[in-house]
Each structure stands twice: as C-alpha cells, then as structure tokens.
Design a protein around this nucleic acid. Structure first.
Lengths: 340, 340
DNA sequence: TTGAAAGCGCTAACAC
DNA sequence: GTGTTAGCGCTTTCAA
C-alpha cells in the first residue's frame, strides 16, 4: 500500500480511500491510484484491514460437517455457500469425521482465525463443551442434529414426522414386520426418526419388536451386516425403513444379493441422483440438505448482524417420493425360499 | 493478550512466548499465563500474528472447484483436506460453477485473505488471465483439467488412456457403433477422453462417426436429450461410453425408459456408491478423485515450502470396474423394436 | 528468564 | 479533497 501511494504520488490514506471506494476523492486521484495498484498487482490485506477497523469482522464463517466428501454434508455446504457468497463471505468447511477431539481442534483453529460464526453438525458427544469453547460472543447455528443443553438456533429435517410418514406408507401396503435401520442413538436425528417409526407402528396397533430396530449404522458395511442378520431371523421383516443413505445402500445390496430386492419393500431417506435407476427404483423420504444449509446460513447471518432474539428451531420438511421399492406388498422373505 | 498479561502479572511478550511454546520460560510463569489465558478464554489472533511475523503465512489455502455439492468435486476436497489437516492448514473451498467471472472474483477474494496457495479446477476459458491474477509469488496447482498456457503443476486422471481402455472393452464385446458422451470441448478432460475414444476406434479399424460423438454434456438433462437423439438415429449406437457421471446417469435413465438398458452397453466414468445397484449394474472407469486431491495438495505444500523445480504433470490412473452394463453384446437398439 | 520499543498493513479520527 | 497521527494484536530485535 505504501508502494502504491509512492507510485501514485499520494498519501497512504488516499490509497485506502480509493481501495474502499470512499467518496470525496477526485476522479483524477482515483485513476492514478488505481493505475498504480494495477501495476503493482496490489491486493488489500483483508486481515490487516479487519485488525485496523477494530470491528474484527473477517467476512468468514466456519462450517463443521461430518465429512466434506459425504454427499449429504456437501449438499449442506452447497446451501451455506449459496447464501454466503451473495454476502461476499468465505466459508471454511472442515470434516469432524464424527470425532469430538477433531471437532474441538477445528473450533480452536477457526476461533484463532477469527471467523464471524459457526455452522456445526455436532458430533455425538460433548455438545456443552464445544458451546462453551465458542463462548457467548460468537454466534453459532447447529444443523442436521440437535445439540443437547445448548442454546442456539437449530435447523434439521422434520425427522420424526418424516419417519412417521415413511412407516405409515409401508403399513398401508400391509406390512406388519418393518425393520428400522438408523444411526447411533446418541444422535438426535436417529432417535427422532426412531420415534417417528414407533409412532406409526403404535398408531396402527402394531407391537414394536426390538429385534427389528437396528441403531448404530455408521457405514454401508454396518448396514449390510444388519440386513443379513434381519433376513436370518425366524420371522424376517417384509419391509425396511432405512433412515439414512448408507443404510439404504447396504440394505439394497444385501437384498439384491439374495434375490429379494423385489420381495422386500424398502424406503430410504436422503434422495440421490441415482435413486431412480436402482433395481427396483428406490422410494425415499427426500430431505433437502441444500435448503437446510441455506436456512442455517441465513440464521447465522441474522445473528452476526445482531439478531439476539431467543434461539429458534427450524424444521425443513422431507417429502415422500414413490418409485417402487416402497410399494412392494408383504411377501415371505425367509432366506432360501427363493432359488431353493 | 494484554488482558492475559495483566491478569498473570507478566509482560505481553511473555504471554506471546507461552502461547507459542517458546523455551526458556519458567514453569511457574507458564502455568500462571495459561491459567489466565483459560480464564479469559483467550485465543491468539492468527491474522495479527501472521502480520507481525512478516512471513505472511496464514496456514490457509484456497480450493476452487466446479461445485462444492458435486460428488466429484467434493471428493477432491476430501483428498485436499486429508493432507491439509495433517499440517494444520485450513481450506477455503468455493464453487466456480464453471463461470469465469465467478472464478476471478473468488481468486481476488482469497488473494485479499492472503491464502498461502491455490488449488484450482479451471473454468473452460481464461486460464492465462487467472494465472496472471495470482501472479508468480503465490503457488498454484491445477486439478482435473489442464489449463492452457499456464506453467504450473497439474494433476488429472489418465483421461486419454482410461477412455481408450473403456472403448476397447466395448470393442472387444463386438461393438462397432459406440457413442461418446462428453463435457464441453474446451475442457481438456473432455477432449482427452475423446482422443482416447478415437484412438481405440482407429486402432480397431472402426471409422469415427461424428454423429456418435456428443460434446457439451453439462447436466443430466443434456445427457438425456443426447441419448434420445442417439437412439433416434437410423443406425443407433449399440454401446455408450459416458465419459462423466452426469452423462451416465442421463443415458441410463433414457435407456431404462425405453426398456433398452439391457440391450445397449454402457460404461461410465466416476464410480459412485450406487453404481452396483443400478439396473443393470454399471461398469465404469473408476477414477480416484480423493487421490487426485491428495496429490494436488501435496504438490501445493511442496511449492509453498519452496520447491521451485519445473512444473510437473501427474496422472492418477482410473481402473475398469466390470459389473454388467459394459458387457452387453451388440443388439438392435432401434426404438420401437421392443414392445412394439 | 523477562521486558521495552518498533513495526507488520491497514483504518479511525482529526486536521488542513 | 487530502495528509497526519495513533493504534488494532501480535512478534521481532535487542536490552536488562
């Protein structure tokens, strides 16, 4: 900046004025300064500016998600980015991989980088401690999962209702033995979907069979193992509610392997590009992670702008998409019934 | 920091020493300072430190990809993150959406934020101008696509060879009318795959039919339209090489719609979680975007650390995954031949 | 082992 | 319209 000032023959402050587009600078000066800045490939140092301004605003936010490579997480990122980029805010996205100490380390790193706020998919544990780490001065919004004991905005899918809708759909087709595949029970998303599933069964007068409820599905492999086990039951399920992407993929893989994919009904959560190409085409509760991300970002920017109303909970509705796999009527699915 | 110093009863410099873990501070002082820092929830300001240090290192890099929500791009991000997080480097990821002016704006924004380097999937045009924008002082690495007229490291898949392998595979099954679906011809990735496709045909003595080569597939919809058109030809293709994810999805959708998915062979690029669940299971050239991202990040950090050897080109091999869709023998695929 | 002074690149407040 | 001075939070150099 000093160099630009020297080259343009003005003071350093005038360069600052031009760079920030302040009024009351003569057109001639503006031109001279801009020419000098271009020639020197000058880019203002945003960090130094923020430091000097005293506002400590960096126009940067941090997004902590399960994994940047996971389609659901990255759809959230996409939503956040859409909103942030309109405001010229840059986004640090990072993966917690579900690990609390990684999460803490990331928060520390971003705190040092003076982000303006956080959007967080909380890991299963330790919610209070990360909230305390962030402190009260920095706004944060939680997405996808509800942190316990933390006062902050939360944006999730309407998990309980959506799970109820999916389960009712299967019940309507006559199913009575419906399996549930879900994430760890420490995660609100999983338990809420479990509640919705149980709501529907109870309302239909169907007894809840704990043997059909499998929690702790974290990978496709987990889902495959669970599905194998379910099919091995004396009285296997005739339908499956796979309450997350990976669970559905694993379940279908196993059903296909046993030639049962057209005999056991299945409804997934999380729509994906290829859901309609699967054999049979997959019925799903389609949640809208991009909308979740957008809403979370909007909340966060409202907070950053000074909104100090009480924390709110937002639910983005998931919709049932009927494609075939969820409309298969109950059939005997005991292993060995087909192909000997 | 001043407050911490006051509370601990030491000078500001001593706090700095403790925070940076410098030696030659008495254990007692360290404890007092740390207690004060904890009590005050003190986090050092990384930007101010970088400013004072004069090295201008921010331990931050920028990643410009097509779209953060796109599975291929986010897999690259995942690879970059894996390497960066080990070095405590934060990543700004942002979407260009293939738009040159967006790309330029992002580069300017990150230049102002004083990132240590760039990893870029270049938009179709304007390579030289973005390189000039970044200037010679900041290292940058290009991924997935080769920028023209830019001297920098490049990491891509072995596009030409992989396309040759895929096409040869189809030729081996007896196909002679093989369609190519590819991205815009301004993108090196698309043209390289096109060259590989043509290499294989030429080597097999099969004439290249321009009517079977479709470039400019940017969306699933584009792919669907192209596939419809191809099926409407007097002599339609008996096989398809869909050289990108979206092209494969659109093509399969149309083939399924016409009941031709078991009559027309198809090989995709980019493996996805559900490739094996599709009807029929999709054969693909599986590229490894996570590895591409990792390699790019490693290159970038080497450059940041001062490596000034001549720019290199790296190719990460893609492997053929045989699942069924690519092993269908040639059959009449004229519309209306099936089901009247 | 600790502290004082100077300055990184920039902007606020105030002159002129 | 433009320049001067002080200082943001920190680290460097040098002195104690």
């Amino acid at each position: 900046m000093r160099d630009v000032a020297a080259l343009a023959g003005v003071s350093i402050k005038t360069v600052s004025r031009v760079v920030n587009g302040e009024p009351r600078v003569s057109a001639d000066t503006v031109n001279r300064v801009q020419a000098a800045a271009d020639q020197l490939q000058f880019f203002p140092d945003a960090a130094a500016a923020s430091l000097a301004r005293g506002s400590r605003e960096t126009r940067t936010v941090a997004l902590l998600i399960a994994s940047v490579g996971n389609p659901f997480s990255s759809a959230i990122f996409q939503g956040v980015e859409e909103v942030a980029s309109k405001r010229q805010v840059a986004v640090f996205a990072a993966s917690t991989e579900g690990d609390t100490s990684t999460e803490e380390g990331l928060i520390r790193a971003f705190l040092s980088r003076r982000v303006d706020g956080f959007i967080i998919t909380p890991t299963p544990e330790n919610h209070a401690s990360i909230a305390q780490l962030i402190g009260a001065n920095l706004p944060s919004v939680y997405v996808d999962r509800e942190p316990i004991g933390v006062k902050a905005d939360v944006v999730t899918a309407n998990n309980r209702v959506a799970a109820r809708v999916a389960t009712k759909h299967l019940l309507r087709y006559g199913h009575r033995r419906i399996a549930l595949l879900a994430d760890e029970q420490q995660i609100s998303t999983a338990t809420d979907r479990g509640f919705g599933y149980e709501d529907a069964l109870t309302q239909a007068g169907v007894a809840i069979d704990p043997a059909l409820e499998v929690y702790g599905i974290a990978t496709v492999k987990d889902a495959e193992q669970a599905m194998e086990r379910l099919l091995g039951l004396a009285s296997p399920p005739t339908a499956v509610f796979a309450s997350r992407n990976m669970a559905a993929i694993g379940a279908i893989r196993v059903l296909q392997r046993h030639g049962l994919s057209h005999r056991v009904a299945l409804i997934g959560f999380d729509d994906i590009d290829t859901s309609d190409l699967v054999d049979p085409p997959m019925s799903v509760m389609r949640q809208d992670p991009v909308a979740i991300g957008k809403l979370a970002a909007e909340c966060l920017f409202a907070r950053i702008s000074g909104d100090d109303s009480p924390p709110k909970r937002y639910e983005v509705p998931a919709v049932l998409v009927v494609r075939g796999s969820g409309e298969i009527p109950p059939q005997d699915a005991r292993l060995g019934q087909i192909n000997g």
